[in-house]
Amino acid sequence: MFVAAAIAGALLYGQHCASCHGADLRGSVNAPSIRGAGAAQVDFWVGTGRMPAALPWVEEGHRRTPFTREQIDALIAYVTSVQPGGAAIPVVLPGGDPRRGRTLFEQNCEHCHGAYAQGASIGSSEWAPSLRDASRVQLAEAVRIGPGQMPPFAEQQLGGRDLDDVAAYVESLDAGADRPLVPLTSSGPVPEGLLGWLAVGLLIVFAFGYSRSSR
């Protein structure tokens, strides 16, 4: 079974990955070596659609992966068959505590990803992506492998329970439709200030019209 998947994965690898990462997975001038990358790495990069990149120098954000679940599993089987090791795909259990997750999120994630996990700039031309598109497993994978500028978090820093809770919190953000008023969740004071000035603009229009009418 594993061998069959690995062979299917090798074919996919040859078509979609080898041109940059090399036939022997040792990388090239365009891409790093992925020998011993492990299941979590492959699942994250391919599953979030960041790989395969159309152009090696353009960093892709989260998008729909062109592969099926079976194809991704085949790629994982192939990469881990060439050189075993690396982090396994973490297991995230449902029923995490979003309140506890919120505290953990504040302590570990909010600095870069923002209070609403909406993503934000982290200086120069780098930005932390929105977490709202990621599945709970992808979220946990990112925590373990630390893609891009993100630092990896070890079990001792954020345990499995912690990840369940953080995932539950991020999911609860999507379920936050039960708000009485329109929330300006992206960047608070910027749209607030613009709306305040719009209100003053309306008042000026009122004053202009009012002083001209009913003389």
Binding site: E110, G188, G193
Partner: peptide, 19 residues
């Protein structure tokens, strides 16, 4: 939504009110 302040928290992005 922003949460209670601790001296190790900082939301991103962070800007003050417009004035």
């Amino acid at each position: 939504d922003y949460g209670r302040y601790h001296d190790w928290t900082i939301p991103n992005p962070a800007v003050p009110d417009w004035y």
